[in-house]
Design a binder for these strands. Structure first.
Length: 457
RNA sequence: GGCUGAAUGGCAGAAUGGCUAUGCAGCGGUUUGCAAAACCGUCUAUGUCGGUUCAAUUCCGGCUUCAGCCUCCA
Protein backbone atom coordinates (compact mmCIF):
# COMPACT_ATOMS: atom_id res chain seq x y z
CA UNK A 1 0.00 0.00 0.00
CA UNK A 2 1.45 3.31 -1.12
CA UNK A 3 1.67 5.93 1.61
CA UNK A 4 2.20 9.59 0.73
CA UNK A 5 2.97 12.51 3.01
CA UNK A 6 0.11 14.97 2.80
CA UNK A 7 1.04 18.57 3.56
CA UNK A 8 -2.57 19.26 4.49
CA UNK A 9 -2.54 16.78 7.38
CA UNK A 10 1.26 16.74 7.97
CA UNK A 11 1.10 12.96 7.99
CA UNK A 12 1.72 10.06 5.67
CA UNK A 13 -1.54 8.58 4.49
CA UNK A 14 -2.51 5.69 2.23
CA UNK A 15 -3.38 6.63 -1.31
CA UNK A 16 -7.02 5.76 -1.93
CA UNK A 17 -7.89 7.10 -5.37
CA UNK A 18 -11.27 8.67 -6.00
CA UNK A 19 -11.81 6.29 -8.92
CA UNK A 20 -10.47 2.80 -8.25
CA UNK A 21 -7.24 2.11 -10.15
CA UNK A 22 -7.01 5.63 -11.52
CA UNK A 23 -4.93 8.48 -10.17
CA UNK A 24 -5.33 12.10 -11.19
CA UNK A 25 -2.37 14.36 -10.46
CA UNK A 26 -1.68 18.03 -11.16
CA UNK A 27 1.72 19.65 -10.64
CA UNK A 28 2.44 23.36 -10.89
CA UNK A 29 4.91 23.87 -13.69
CA UNK A 30 7.03 26.74 -14.82
CA UNK A 31 6.54 30.33 -15.72
CA UNK A 32 8.33 30.35 -19.04
CA UNK A 33 10.46 33.47 -19.34
CA UNK A 34 13.89 31.88 -18.84
CA UNK A 35 15.75 28.57 -18.87
CA UNK A 36 15.04 25.86 -16.28
CA UNK A 37 17.44 25.70 -13.38
CA UNK A 38 18.26 22.73 -11.16
CA UNK A 39 15.34 23.58 -8.87
CA UNK A 40 12.94 23.15 -11.76
CA UNK A 41 14.71 19.95 -12.70
CA UNK A 42 14.01 18.62 -9.23
CA UNK A 43 10.26 19.14 -9.55
CA UNK A 44 10.22 17.45 -12.92
CA UNK A 45 12.24 14.45 -11.76
CA UNK A 46 10.51 14.03 -8.40
CA UNK A 47 7.03 13.91 -9.91
CA UNK A 48 8.24 11.87 -12.86
CA UNK A 49 9.39 9.23 -10.39
CA UNK A 50 6.09 9.39 -8.52
CA UNK A 51 4.10 8.97 -11.73
CA UNK A 52 6.35 6.18 -12.99
CA UNK A 53 5.87 4.33 -9.72
CA UNK A 54 2.10 4.83 -9.73
CA UNK A 55 2.01 3.35 -13.23
CA UNK A 56 4.28 0.49 -12.13
CA UNK A 57 1.72 -0.25 -9.41
CA UNK A 58 -0.89 -0.55 -12.13
CA UNK A 59 -2.74 2.72 -11.75
CA UNK A 60 -4.01 4.51 -14.81
CA UNK A 61 -2.47 7.91 -14.21
CA UNK A 62 -3.61 11.20 -15.66
CA UNK A 63 -0.70 13.56 -15.09
CA UNK A 64 -1.19 17.27 -15.76
CA UNK A 65 1.51 19.90 -15.43
CA UNK A 66 0.68 23.43 -16.45
CA UNK A 67 2.68 26.14 -18.16
CA UNK A 68 2.22 29.75 -17.08
CA UNK A 69 2.68 31.67 -20.30
CA UNK A 70 1.32 35.06 -19.26
CA UNK A 71 2.36 37.13 -16.26
CA UNK A 72 4.25 40.28 -15.24
CA UNK A 73 7.71 38.84 -15.68
CA UNK A 74 6.92 37.48 -19.11
CA UNK A 75 5.56 40.85 -20.23
CA UNK A 76 8.56 42.62 -18.79
CA UNK A 77 11.06 40.27 -20.40
CA UNK A 78 9.32 40.43 -23.76
CA UNK A 79 9.40 44.24 -23.60
CA UNK A 80 13.11 44.21 -22.74
CA UNK A 81 13.75 41.96 -25.72
CA UNK A 82 11.46 43.96 -27.95
CA UNK A 83 9.57 40.85 -28.97
CA UNK A 84 6.04 39.55 -28.79
CA UNK A 85 5.40 37.66 -25.56
CA UNK A 86 4.27 34.60 -27.53
CA UNK A 87 7.62 34.35 -29.25
CA UNK A 88 9.35 34.50 -25.88
CA UNK A 89 7.17 31.86 -24.24
CA UNK A 90 7.27 29.52 -27.22
CA UNK A 91 11.04 29.62 -27.18
CA UNK A 92 11.31 28.82 -23.49
CA UNK A 93 8.64 26.14 -23.64
CA UNK A 94 10.75 24.47 -26.31
CA UNK A 95 13.85 24.80 -24.12
CA UNK A 96 11.99 23.37 -21.13
CA UNK A 97 10.87 20.34 -23.14
CA UNK A 98 14.44 19.76 -24.31
CA UNK A 99 15.69 19.88 -20.72
CA UNK A 100 13.04 17.56 -19.35
CA UNK A 101 13.52 15.11 -22.22
CA UNK A 102 17.26 15.09 -21.56
CA UNK A 103 16.61 14.23 -17.93
CA UNK A 104 14.57 11.23 -18.97
CA UNK A 105 11.33 12.75 -17.74
CA UNK A 106 8.26 11.20 -19.32
CA UNK A 107 6.16 14.10 -20.52
CA UNK A 108 2.95 14.79 -18.61
CA UNK A 109 -0.21 13.64 -20.36
CA UNK A 110 -1.25 17.25 -20.77
CA UNK A 111 0.72 20.48 -20.38
CA UNK A 112 -1.98 23.13 -20.54
CA UNK A 113 -1.01 26.73 -21.23
CA UNK A 114 -2.81 29.47 -19.35
CA UNK A 115 -3.50 31.54 -22.48
CA UNK A 116 -5.44 28.62 -23.99
CA UNK A 117 -7.87 28.56 -21.06
CA UNK A 118 -9.05 32.16 -20.85
CA UNK A 119 -12.79 31.36 -21.24
CA UNK A 120 -12.60 28.72 -18.51
CA UNK A 121 -10.73 31.11 -16.25
CA UNK A 122 -13.33 33.83 -16.83
CA UNK A 123 -16.12 31.34 -16.06
CA UNK A 124 -14.51 30.41 -12.75
CA UNK A 125 -14.05 34.04 -11.77
CA UNK A 126 -17.72 34.61 -12.54
CA UNK A 127 -18.63 31.70 -10.27
CA UNK A 128 -16.56 33.27 -7.50
CA UNK A 129 -18.34 36.60 -7.97
CA UNK A 130 -21.69 34.81 -7.93
CA UNK A 131 -20.72 32.95 -4.77
CA UNK A 132 -19.64 36.20 -3.08
CA UNK A 133 -16.00 35.13 -2.82
CA UNK A 134 -14.81 37.90 -5.12
CA UNK A 135 -15.37 41.61 -5.63
CA UNK A 136 -14.41 44.34 -8.04
CA UNK A 137 -11.99 46.97 -6.76
CA UNK A 138 -11.99 50.71 -7.50
CA UNK A 139 -9.26 50.14 -10.06
CA UNK A 140 -11.47 47.62 -11.88
CA UNK A 141 -9.52 44.48 -10.92
CA UNK A 142 -11.38 41.43 -9.69
CA UNK A 143 -10.06 40.28 -6.32
CA UNK A 144 -10.64 37.22 -4.14
CA UNK A 145 -11.89 37.99 -0.65
CA UNK A 146 -9.79 35.90 1.67
CA UNK A 147 -12.14 36.44 4.59
CA UNK A 148 -15.01 34.89 2.64
CA UNK A 149 -13.33 31.48 2.78
CA UNK A 150 -13.44 29.95 6.24
CA UNK A 151 -10.66 27.43 5.71
CA UNK A 152 -8.15 29.95 4.39
CA UNK A 153 -4.75 29.08 5.88
CA UNK A 154 -5.42 25.38 6.54
CA UNK A 155 -2.76 24.12 4.15
CA UNK A 156 0.07 26.32 5.34
CA UNK A 157 -0.99 26.48 8.99
CA UNK A 158 -1.25 30.24 8.87
CA UNK A 159 -3.95 32.46 10.30
CA UNK A 160 -5.15 35.49 8.41
CA UNK A 161 -4.75 37.79 11.37
CA UNK A 162 -1.16 36.61 12.01
CA UNK A 163 0.05 37.26 8.51
CA UNK A 164 1.85 40.52 8.11
CA UNK A 165 0.78 41.49 4.69
CA UNK A 166 2.41 44.61 3.47
CA UNK A 167 5.49 44.16 5.59
CA UNK A 168 7.68 43.75 2.58
CA UNK A 169 5.41 45.01 -0.13
CA UNK A 170 3.24 48.07 -0.64
CA UNK A 171 -0.35 47.57 0.34
CA UNK A 172 -2.83 48.10 -2.42
CA UNK A 173 -5.39 50.46 -0.84
CA UNK A 174 -8.14 49.35 -3.17
CA UNK A 175 -8.20 45.83 -1.65
CA UNK A 176 -10.59 45.08 1.20
CA UNK A 177 -7.94 42.96 2.89
CA UNK A 178 -4.27 43.18 2.05
CA UNK A 179 -4.12 39.39 1.64
CA UNK A 180 -6.78 39.47 -1.06
CA UNK A 181 -5.31 38.55 -4.40
CA UNK A 182 -6.07 39.43 -7.99
CA UNK A 183 -8.18 37.12 -10.12
CA UNK A 184 -8.49 39.39 -13.14
CA UNK A 185 -6.12 42.24 -13.72
CA UNK A 186 -6.97 45.23 -15.90
CA UNK A 187 -4.59 45.66 -18.82
CA UNK A 188 -2.31 48.64 -19.07
CA UNK A 189 -1.72 50.26 -22.42
CA UNK A 190 -0.16 47.88 -24.98
CA UNK A 191 -0.19 44.91 -22.65
CA UNK A 192 -1.43 41.54 -23.88
CA UNK A 193 -5.10 41.34 -22.95
CA UNK A 194 -8.33 39.45 -23.39
CA UNK A 195 -11.93 40.64 -23.23
CA UNK A 196 -13.94 39.80 -20.16
CA UNK A 197 -17.19 40.92 -18.50
CA UNK A 198 -15.04 43.20 -16.34
CA UNK A 199 -13.05 44.79 -19.13
CA UNK A 200 -9.95 43.83 -21.09
CA UNK A 201 -7.24 42.34 -18.93
CA UNK A 202 -5.52 39.13 -18.04
CA UNK A 203 -5.86 36.43 -15.40
CA UNK A 204 -4.00 36.44 -12.10
CA UNK A 205 -1.51 33.66 -11.59
CA UNK A 206 -3.41 31.69 -8.95
CA UNK A 207 -6.70 31.37 -10.85
CA UNK A 208 -4.94 29.80 -13.83
CA UNK A 209 -4.06 26.68 -11.89
CA UNK A 210 -7.50 26.36 -10.34
CA UNK A 211 -9.18 26.65 -13.72
CA UNK A 212 -6.83 24.37 -15.63
CA UNK A 213 -6.72 21.64 -12.99
CA UNK A 214 -10.51 21.63 -12.74
CA UNK A 215 -10.99 21.54 -16.50
CA UNK A 216 -8.42 18.76 -16.97
CA UNK A 217 -9.15 16.60 -13.91
CA UNK A 218 -12.55 17.64 -12.57
CA UNK A 219 -13.58 19.51 -9.44
CA UNK A 220 -12.11 16.92 -7.10
CA UNK A 221 -8.92 15.02 -7.84
CA UNK A 222 -6.30 12.90 -6.09
CA UNK A 223 -2.91 14.62 -5.89
CA UNK A 224 -1.68 18.15 -6.33
CA UNK A 225 2.05 18.84 -6.25
CA UNK A 226 4.65 21.54 -6.55
CA UNK A 227 7.60 23.13 -4.82
CA UNK A 228 7.52 23.99 -1.11
CA UNK A 229 7.45 27.68 -1.91
CA UNK A 230 4.07 27.33 -3.59
CA UNK A 231 2.42 26.14 -0.41
CA UNK A 232 1.64 29.70 0.53
CA UNK A 233 0.08 31.63 -0.96
CA UNK A 234 -0.32 29.88 -4.30
CA UNK A 235 -1.80 26.56 -3.19
CA UNK A 236 -3.71 28.14 -0.36
CA UNK A 237 -5.28 30.43 -2.93
CA UNK A 238 -6.03 27.56 -5.27
CA UNK A 239 -7.98 25.79 -2.57
CA UNK A 240 -9.90 28.97 -1.78
CA UNK A 241 -10.70 29.55 -5.44
CA UNK A 242 -11.61 26.02 -6.47
CA UNK A 243 -13.63 25.15 -3.39
CA UNK A 244 -15.18 28.62 -3.45
CA UNK A 245 -16.25 28.20 -7.05
CA UNK A 246 -17.31 24.56 -7.10
CA UNK A 247 -18.34 24.16 -3.46
CA UNK A 248 -16.71 20.73 -3.55
CA UNK A 249 -13.54 19.36 -2.00
CA UNK A 250 -10.62 20.20 -4.29
CA UNK A 251 -7.67 17.88 -3.65
CA UNK A 252 -7.06 14.83 -1.45
CA UNK A 253 -3.28 14.85 -1.13
CA UNK A 254 -0.91 17.81 -1.36
CA UNK A 255 2.70 16.91 -2.16
CA UNK A 256 5.52 19.43 -1.88
CA UNK A 257 9.14 18.87 -2.79
CA UNK A 258 12.06 20.51 -0.95
CA UNK A 259 14.39 23.07 -2.44
CA UNK A 260 17.67 22.81 -4.18
CA UNK A 261 20.17 24.89 -2.24
CA UNK A 262 23.59 26.30 -2.85
CA UNK A 263 25.70 26.83 0.27
CA UNK A 264 22.59 26.26 2.36
CA UNK A 265 20.63 28.95 0.58
CA UNK A 266 17.66 28.44 -1.67
CA UNK A 267 18.60 28.36 -5.34
CA UNK A 268 16.57 31.07 -7.02
CA UNK A 269 16.55 33.60 -9.76
CA UNK A 270 16.28 36.54 -7.39
CA UNK A 271 19.35 35.50 -5.39
CA UNK A 272 21.19 34.87 -8.62
CA UNK A 273 22.70 31.65 -7.25
CA UNK A 274 21.28 29.26 -9.79
CA UNK A 275 22.62 26.88 -12.39
CA UNK A 276 20.52 26.18 -15.42
CA UNK A 277 19.95 22.60 -16.45
CA UNK A 278 21.78 23.17 -19.70
CA UNK A 279 24.82 24.59 -17.89
CA UNK A 280 25.01 21.49 -15.72
CA UNK A 281 24.56 19.20 -18.70
CA UNK A 282 27.65 20.66 -20.32
CA UNK A 283 29.67 19.09 -17.51
CA UNK A 284 27.69 16.01 -16.59
CA UNK A 285 25.59 13.44 -18.35
CA UNK A 286 21.88 14.06 -17.77
CA UNK A 287 21.50 10.83 -15.86
CA UNK A 288 24.06 12.07 -13.31
CA UNK A 289 21.82 15.02 -12.54
CA UNK A 290 18.81 12.74 -12.28
CA UNK A 291 20.73 10.39 -9.98
CA UNK A 292 21.89 13.35 -7.88
CA UNK A 293 18.29 14.50 -7.41
CA UNK A 294 17.31 11.02 -6.22
CA UNK A 295 20.11 10.82 -3.62
CA UNK A 296 17.97 12.89 -1.28
CA UNK A 297 14.38 12.25 -0.23
CA UNK A 298 12.06 14.52 -2.21
CA UNK A 299 10.91 16.49 0.84
CA UNK A 300 14.45 17.10 2.14
CA UNK A 301 16.64 19.95 1.02
CA UNK A 302 19.18 19.10 -1.66
CA UNK A 303 22.45 20.97 -1.56
CA UNK A 304 24.03 21.51 -4.94
CA UNK A 305 27.81 21.37 -5.25
CA UNK A 306 30.39 20.09 -7.70
CA UNK A 307 31.64 17.65 -5.07
CA UNK A 308 28.17 16.10 -4.76
CA UNK A 309 27.68 15.97 -8.51
CA UNK A 310 31.05 14.24 -8.83
CA UNK A 311 30.09 11.73 -6.16
CA UNK A 312 26.86 11.07 -8.04
CA UNK A 313 28.84 10.52 -11.20
CA UNK A 314 31.16 8.03 -9.49
CA UNK A 315 28.24 6.18 -7.99
CA UNK A 316 26.43 5.89 -11.30
CA UNK A 317 29.61 4.61 -12.94
CA UNK A 318 29.71 1.85 -10.34
CA UNK A 319 26.16 0.80 -11.18
CA UNK A 320 26.78 0.79 -14.92
CA UNK A 321 30.05 -1.09 -14.41
CA UNK A 322 28.09 -3.85 -12.72
CA UNK A 323 25.76 -4.07 -15.72
CA UNK A 324 28.62 -4.10 -18.22
CA UNK A 325 28.92 -7.11 -20.53
CA UNK A 326 25.89 -8.85 -19.09
CA UNK A 327 22.74 -9.75 -20.97
CA UNK A 328 20.03 -7.79 -19.21
CA UNK A 329 17.32 -8.90 -21.57
CA UNK A 330 14.56 -9.02 -19.00
CA UNK A 331 15.54 -12.25 -17.32
CA UNK A 332 13.47 -13.11 -14.28
CA UNK A 333 15.26 -13.01 -10.97
CA UNK A 334 15.12 -16.02 -8.63
CA UNK A 335 15.62 -13.78 -5.63
CA UNK A 336 12.63 -11.47 -5.34
CA UNK A 337 13.79 -9.89 -2.06
CA UNK A 338 15.25 -6.91 -3.89
CA UNK A 339 11.97 -6.22 -5.63
CA UNK A 340 10.04 -6.62 -2.41
CA UNK A 341 12.30 -4.20 -0.59
CA UNK A 342 12.13 -1.81 -3.51
CA UNK A 343 8.35 -1.79 -3.34
CA UNK A 344 8.37 -1.42 0.42
CA UNK A 345 10.59 1.67 0.39
CA UNK A 346 8.83 3.28 -2.56
CA UNK A 347 5.52 2.64 -0.82
CA UNK A 348 6.92 4.64 2.07
CA UNK A 349 6.50 8.08 0.50
CA UNK A 350 8.81 7.42 -2.47
CA UNK A 351 12.02 6.85 -0.50
CA UNK A 352 14.49 7.16 -3.36
CA UNK A 353 17.70 7.10 -1.24
CA UNK A 354 16.68 3.66 0.00
CA UNK A 355 16.02 2.62 -3.59
CA UNK A 356 19.58 3.59 -4.49
CA UNK A 357 20.90 1.56 -1.56
CA UNK A 358 19.05 -1.48 -2.92
CA UNK A 359 20.48 -0.88 -6.39
CA UNK A 360 23.98 -0.86 -4.91
CA UNK A 361 23.38 -4.06 -3.01
CA UNK A 362 22.24 -5.62 -6.26
CA UNK A 363 25.32 -4.43 -8.10
CA UNK A 364 27.47 -5.84 -5.33
CA UNK A 365 25.79 -9.22 -5.69
CA UNK A 366 26.27 -9.06 -9.46
CA UNK A 367 29.98 -8.36 -9.10
CA UNK A 368 30.37 -11.29 -6.75
CA UNK A 369 28.37 -13.68 -8.94
CA UNK A 370 29.90 -12.70 -12.21
CA UNK A 371 33.09 -14.82 -11.89
CA UNK A 372 31.58 -18.13 -10.80
CA UNK A 373 27.85 -17.97 -11.53
CA UNK A 374 27.26 -16.05 -14.73
CA UNK A 375 23.60 -17.06 -15.09
CA UNK A 376 22.86 -15.67 -11.63
CA UNK A 377 24.83 -12.50 -12.41
CA UNK A 378 22.75 -12.07 -15.55
CA UNK A 379 19.50 -12.52 -13.69
CA UNK A 380 20.55 -10.04 -11.01
CA UNK A 381 21.65 -7.58 -13.67
CA UNK A 382 18.23 -7.83 -15.28
CA UNK A 383 16.67 -7.08 -11.93
CA UNK A 384 18.98 -4.12 -11.42
CA UNK A 385 18.07 -2.65 -14.78
CA UNK A 386 14.38 -3.35 -14.20
CA UNK A 387 14.22 -1.72 -10.77
CA UNK A 388 16.40 1.18 -11.93
CA UNK A 389 13.98 1.71 -14.78
CA UNK A 390 11.09 2.28 -12.42
CA UNK A 391 12.86 5.41 -11.16
CA UNK A 392 14.16 6.28 -14.63
CA UNK A 393 17.77 5.15 -14.17
CA UNK A 394 20.14 2.67 -15.82
CA UNK A 395 18.30 2.32 -19.12
CA UNK A 396 21.27 3.30 -21.29
CA UNK A 397 23.59 0.75 -22.87
CA UNK A 398 26.42 0.49 -20.31
CA UNK A 399 29.06 0.76 -23.04
CA UNK A 400 27.52 3.97 -24.32
CA UNK A 401 27.14 5.38 -20.83
CA UNK A 402 30.71 4.52 -19.83
CA UNK A 403 32.43 5.33 -23.10
CA UNK A 404 30.26 8.07 -24.54
CA UNK A 405 29.48 8.38 -28.20
CA UNK A 406 31.66 11.32 -29.12
CA UNK A 407 34.93 9.46 -28.51
CA UNK A 408 37.24 8.41 -31.32
CA UNK A 409 37.01 4.76 -30.33
CA UNK A 410 39.03 3.48 -33.29
CA UNK A 411 42.16 5.33 -32.24
CA UNK A 412 41.64 4.27 -28.63
CA UNK A 413 41.30 0.64 -29.69
CA UNK A 414 44.50 1.00 -31.74
CA UNK A 415 46.41 2.33 -28.75
CA UNK A 416 45.09 -0.55 -26.65
CA UNK A 417 46.41 -2.99 -29.29
CA UNK A 418 49.78 -1.20 -29.30
CA UNK A 419 49.91 -1.40 -25.53
CA UNK A 420 49.06 -5.08 -25.62
CA UNK A 421 52.01 -5.69 -27.94
CA UNK A 422 54.29 -3.73 -25.65
CA UNK A 423 53.07 -5.71 -22.66
CA UNK A 424 53.67 -9.00 -24.43
CA UNK A 425 57.24 -7.80 -25.01
CA UNK A 426 57.36 -6.86 -21.34
CA UNK A 427 58.04 -3.31 -22.42
CA UNK A 428 56.36 -1.81 -19.37
CA UNK A 429 57.66 1.69 -20.02
CA UNK A 430 55.94 1.85 -23.41
CA UNK A 431 52.79 0.19 -22.07
CA UNK A 432 52.56 2.72 -19.25
CA UNK A 433 53.29 5.58 -21.63
CA UNK A 434 50.31 4.60 -23.76
CA UNK A 435 48.14 4.27 -20.70
CA UNK A 436 49.22 7.73 -19.54
CA UNK A 437 48.56 9.15 -22.97
CA UNK A 438 45.01 7.84 -22.84
CA UNK A 439 44.63 9.10 -19.30
CA UNK A 440 45.49 12.55 -20.62
CA UNK A 441 42.59 12.17 -23.04
CA UNK A 442 40.29 11.30 -20.16
CA UNK A 443 40.30 7.57 -20.87
CA UNK A 444 41.00 5.01 -18.18
CA UNK A 445 41.96 1.41 -19.01
CA UNK A 446 40.91 -1.68 -17.12
CA UNK A 447 42.83 -4.91 -17.71
CA UNK A 448 40.90 -8.12 -17.37
CA UNK A 449 42.52 -11.55 -17.53
CA UNK A 450 41.49 -11.92 -21.17
CA UNK A 451 41.11 -8.38 -22.48
CA UNK A 452 41.36 -4.67 -21.81
CA UNK A 453 38.34 -2.39 -21.60
CA UNK A 454 38.19 1.37 -21.43
CA UNK A 455 35.87 4.07 -20.17
CA UNK A 456 35.71 7.81 -19.83
CA UNK A 457 36.81 9.28 -16.53
C1' G B 1 6.88 39.02 15.12
C1' G B 2 3.89 34.55 13.30
C1' C B 3 3.94 29.82 10.83
C1' U B 4 6.67 25.31 8.67
C1' G B 5 10.58 22.11 8.73
C1' A B 6 15.53 20.50 9.88
C1' A B 7 20.23 19.25 13.00
C1' U B 8 23.27 11.71 11.87
C1' G B 9 30.48 9.62 10.77
C1' G B 10 35.67 13.37 6.53
C1' C B 11 31.49 14.48 2.75
C1' A B 12 26.53 13.13 0.92
C1' G B 13 22.35 10.75 2.90
C1' A B 14 18.47 6.95 4.86
C1' A B 15 16.48 4.37 8.90
C1' U B 16 15.37 2.86 13.74
C1' G B 17 12.83 2.37 21.24
C1' G B 18 17.73 -2.55 21.94
C1' C B 19 20.99 -5.34 15.93
C1' U B 20 23.57 1.30 13.36
C1' A B 21 21.82 1.45 5.66
C1' U B 22 24.00 3.00 1.08
C1' G B 23 27.48 5.89 -1.95
C1' C B 24 31.99 8.86 -2.22
C1' A B 25 36.61 9.44 0.40
C1' G B 26 40.42 6.86 3.98
C1' C B 27 43.13 2.53 5.83
C1' G B 28 44.83 -2.94 5.41
C1' G B 29 44.58 -7.17 2.16
C1' U B 30 43.41 -10.35 -2.50
C1' U B 31 44.17 -9.53 -7.68
C1' U B 32 47.62 -6.92 -11.30
C1' G B 33 54.22 -6.35 -14.41
C1' C B 34 52.47 -1.64 -12.08
C1' A B 35 47.71 0.43 -12.13
C1' A B 36 42.39 0.57 -12.78
C1' A B 37 38.00 -2.11 -11.80
C1' A B 38 36.24 -5.85 -8.64
C1' C B 39 36.37 -8.66 -4.15
C1' C B 40 37.58 -9.41 1.37
C1' G B 41 38.36 -6.75 5.88
C1' U B 42 38.30 -2.06 8.56
C1' C B 43 38.08 3.23 11.17
C1' U B 44 34.79 7.71 12.04
C1' A B 45 28.18 9.76 13.94
C1' U B 46 23.26 10.76 15.94
C1' G B 47 23.61 19.74 18.07
C1' U B 48 22.59 20.80 23.51
C1' C B 49 20.08 20.30 28.43
C1' G B 50 16.30 17.72 30.87
C1' G B 51 12.08 14.00 31.05
C1' U B 52 9.59 9.09 29.99
C1' U B 53 11.67 3.96 29.71
C1' C B 54 14.94 -1.93 31.79
C1' A B 55 16.83 0.61 27.29
C1' A B 56 16.51 6.97 23.53
C1' U B 57 19.96 8.92 17.93
C1' U B 58 14.73 7.41 17.65
C1' C B 59 9.22 9.43 22.01
C1' C B 60 8.17 14.29 25.00
C1' G B 61 9.76 19.31 26.61
C1' G B 62 13.32 23.52 26.93
C1' C B 63 17.62 25.71 24.53
C1' U B 64 20.96 26.70 20.41
C1' U B 65 21.83 26.86 15.32
C1' C B 66 20.16 26.53 10.23
C1' A B 67 16.69 26.75 6.18
C1' G B 68 11.90 28.12 4.07
C1' C B 69 7.20 30.87 3.95
C1' C B 70 4.38 35.44 5.43
C1' U B 71 6.00 39.86 -2.26
C1' C B 72 7.12 36.77 -7.46
C1' C B 73 9.29 31.89 -6.94
C1' A B 74 9.69 24.83 -8.27
Amino acid sequence: MLNIYNTLTRKKQPLTPIKPNEVSIYVCGMTVYDYCHVGHARVMVVFDVAVRYLRYLGFKVNYISNITDIDDKIIQRANENGEDFNELTNRFIQAMLEDSDALGVIRPDTQPRATKFIPEIIAMIQDLLDNKHAYITDSGDVCYSVKSFANYGNLSGKKIEELRAGERVNIDESKENSLDFVLWKMAKLNEPSWDSPWGTGRPGWHIECSAMSTVCLGNHFDIHGGGMDLQFPHHENEIAQSEGATEEKFVNIWMHNGFVRINDEKMSKSLGNFFTVREVLKKYQPEVLRYFILTSHYRSPLNYSDADLNAAKQALTRLYTALRNLDTDNKSCPDDSYKQRFTAVMDDDFNSPEVLAILFELSHSINKARTDDLPLATQLASELKRLGGIVGLLQADPEIYLQGIEQDSASIEQLIVDRKTARQQRNWAEADRIRDELQQQGIVLEDNPSSTTWRKI
